[in-house]
């Protein structure tokens, strides 16, 4: 795959925004990521990382919001144990997503795919 400077920069920006969406800029980060995605062409490194970012964040949304929500709803909103499990789960899962997004960021800096 040919990689030029502009694509490389966009690829690292996409991974940075994906990481931001997980940490300091939820939702806003995702919107920027979608806008970045629209600028990319198929089969390029920036498209690759925009897609990775979108996947990570969608997965994170499901794993963090949906699963946590289900844990509380199914465990009972009033049950303190369901909140306790949810919190422990949320902290752990969230940290893992951040680590994955960080690795993607680092890989995108060097213009290589994840694997």
């Amino acid at each position: 795959m040919e990689v030029d400077e502009v694509q490389l920069k966009r690829a690292s920006r996409a991974s940075l925004v994906s990481l931001s969406n997980l940490t300091v800029l939820p939702v806003i980060g995702f919107i920027i990521l979608l806008l970045l995605y629209k600028k990319t062409a198929p089969d390029t490194i920036d498209r690759y990382y925009a897609v990775i970012g979108i996947k990570i964040n969608l997965l994170a949304a499901v794993a963090l919001l949906l699963v946590s929500g289900l844990m509380v709803v199914m465990g009972g909103f009033e049950s303190h144990m369901s909140w306790i499990y949810m919190l422990s789960y949320f902290v752990t899962a969230h940290a893992l997503f951040i680590l994955v997004a960080t690795w993607a960021l680092v890989r995108s800096w060097s213009g290589k795919k994840l694997r």
Partner: peptide
């Protein structure tokens, strides 16, 4: 970030 980057 630093360790990942350097190893990469």
């Amino acid at each position: 970030l630093f360790a990942f980057n350097v190893v990469n």
